[in-house]
Design a protein around this nucleic acid. Structure first.
Lengths: 237, 237
DNA sequence: TTATTTATAGACCAAAAGGTCTATAAGTGG
DNA sequence: CCACTTATAGACCTTTTGGTCTATAAATAA
């Protein structure tokens, strides 16, 4: 588990925690372990971000419960800088929502402050070596949260009373063109039919979808899983 | 169906694996452990699903690399039945995409076939007790996949050349109402301004977003992160 | 102060959208 | 064969949209 190879580069670590006691405590723990190099400490998120830009550390240990600026925001800012820095969250809470948001923003680890110091060291080692570290209990929380989010979403978008299923193929083709913001004239020429026919189809679509105009039809289509890039990304089976 | 008259209820397990050798092997491992009750086995996904309906097991161990019917589909079907059964995937591959899709469909665990039998027992125990079990290495894979999916999505939707940022507050309010499929008249009465004013705003919006009509404006708004339920769900910071 | 932006609004007009009714040809299922 | 659905399309009409031009008051920036 622990690498004893001395010639290996020490991982450069930056600490950000508004609680000074805690900050120095962690610094000591990490420094004692000869493996890491603490290149900076900060009790403020903003100063921490500046330090990150200057020192470009390998790892940031970031407290995410800070007043002034939210730790999550700090993660977002640092991630958007693309410094190649890997962020580990330090938190007092194992709240699923917090964990989810932190990981979504690109955190590479999440450890609780109540954790034994040996585990913290292990987490840093893991993350420094390119892995992601989430303690099993938190991983479980994270995935539960992830699953319920998706269950809600698919439930709301299926509802099994999807009016889109009543459309004929031709109507679907027309709707598809409508969702691209094309006029009747345009649809007519694309489908090689007359403008009147398009209007007839559109009227039928409106009735089937129970809407009054194209904007509402397009909205219904998008919200109910009618070909949509974003959905495809996250929902391939 | 025999009832085990024991102090602690044994977890009832159903096994689905198209490889018969493997199936019997697992059955033996599980049965030896006095803790579980194998209530059925199947080498076919479809039969397995029927068995699940009949026996309503606590746990299903499901091979997800089966010919005939995909294990993922089977998971989806069983989950949609809401039997209260918790599914653990058995797979020969630690492919991130597979893991992600399985968990997204509601699997409660994912273990590799190469795993030591003791670990399999542990996984079943964990899942049976209501937790989610993903071995650390797979959890890491899962989260990496999750993060890259979201990075792509936010990258494509920000691009930092977001025309929406040029809109004034008032124009945003108007656009917001447009994205609900409301007419000029409706917008006017909601904002307590004249219809003409609405039209002026809308024209400005079109120019700023470089579109020609409301449908295209609405599409632009949705595809570029303008208040949208689905996004909100998955992207609160 | 002057220029610019923002929100407001009127007038006029053309194009597009939407509603309703009718009608025909092809295909499907009893 | 008859009823039904689907795709096609014309006629007529109203409402909504969108385009352009002008204009005023308030706030803001140069």
């Amino acid at each position: 588990m622990r690498r004893a190879i001395e010639y290996k580069k020490k991982a450069r670590v930056l600490l950000i925690d508004d609680n000074y006691e805690h900050l120095t405590g962690i610094k000591e723990i990490i420094s004692m372990e000869g493996e890491f190099d603490v290149v900076g400490t900060s009790t403020s998120a903003n100063v921490g971000i500046s330090l990150a830009k200057k020192t470009r550390p390998d790892i940031i240990l970031m407290d995410i419960n800070m007043p002034e600026k939210d730790g999550l925001q700090a993660i977002q800012e640092i991630e958007s800088l693309n410094l190649g820095t890997r962020i580990i969250c330090l938190s007092g809470y194992d709240d699923a929502d917090l964990i989810f948001r932190a990981m979504k923003l690109g955190a590479k680890g999440y450890v609780l402050k109540t954790m034994a110091s040996g585990q913290l060291i292990y987490a840093i080692e893991e993350v420094a070596s390119g892995k992601i570290y989430l303690p099993p209990a938190l991983c479980s929380r994270f995935i539960e949260y992830f699953q319920t989010s998706f269950k809600e979403e698919s439930a709301s978008s299926s509802d099994e009373e999807n009016l889109l299923s009543y459309l004929t193929q031709r109507e679907e083709e027309v709707l598809d063109l409508l969702t691209q913001g094309i006029t009747y004239k345009g649809v007519a020429s694309k489908l090689f039919i007359s403008e009147t026919t398009v209007k007839t189809h559109v009227n039928n679509i409106f009735q089937k979808l129970q809407v009054n105009d194209r904007t509402q039809a397009v909205l219904y289509a998008i919200n109910n899983g009618f070909t949509n890039k974003k959905k495809a990304l996250m929902s391939k089976i």
